[in-house]
């Protein structure tokens, strides 16, 4: 029987999202399909199984040549892709087949966080320009529409800044360790 759950995770909370999926799997509910735009997660029930889930932000689209090359490599290692959204992929491995981490050294962990951070960074200037325009519009017109539009752009800008600084603090922490370990 298929169960549908709705839960909102922001892009910078992918580790929290992983933890949630793994908890569900421990209880016998295993993610089989995901549509982040509808914040919809679909689970299959099988108490006899347990999977480890990981979420990764790829360098390329999963459908591109490079993306497919990587996903095929993962498949050889018993890692299956159960869904994707833009450059995000949802991966899992049967617990019976061993531990599943995507990155085993600090360097590749840092690279992954940096990739996610760029996502926030490249869009941020555009969002801030948009926000300034909307605030100016509101100052001129003082109507409800421009008030709502300005409010919305402020919220979006704040979300992106949160994402950027969340990734930055993780990177900083790992960088510090990297002075000692690898």
């Amino acid at each position: 029987m298929r169960i549908i759950k709705r839960k909102l995770f922001w892009a910078w909370q992918f580790e929290k999202e992983e933890a949630w999926l793994n908890e569900n799997s421990k209880e016998g509910q295993h993610l089989v399909a995901v549509s982040p735009l509808q914040i919809k997660y679909e689970f299959d029930q099988d108490p006899s199984k347990e999977y480890t889930y990981r979420i990764e932000f790829l360098d390329d689209l999963p459908s591109s040549r490079k993306g497919r090359d990587y996903l095929e490599f993962l498949e050889e290692l018993e890692v299956e892709q159960i869904g994707s959204y833009l450059r995000w992929v949802y991966l899992r491995k049967d617990k019976d087949k061993g531990e599943f981490e995507l990155h085993s050294d600090l360097d590749s962990k840092i690279k992954h966080f940096k990739r996610v951070r760029v996502l926030f960074l490249v869009l941020l200037p555009m969002i801030i320009i948009n926000m300034i325009n909307m605030i100016n519009l509101f100052n001129r017109t003082k109507n409800l529409f421009s008030f709502l539009a300005a409010g919305l752009t402020i919220i979006v800008a704040m979300l992106f800044i949160t994402g950027f600084s969340s990734m930055s603090s993780k990177i900083k922490e790992l960088d510090l360790n990297k002075n000692i370990w690898e």
Binding site: E56, Y70, F73, L74, L77, V79, G98, E99, E101, L102, H103, S104, D105, D107, S108, K111, H112
Partner: peptide
């Protein structure tokens, strides 16, 4: 002791 993770190995 050393279990290379797929992402790290691929990179």
């Amino acid at each position: 002791r050393v279990d290379l993770a797929p992402g790290t190995l691929y990179g």
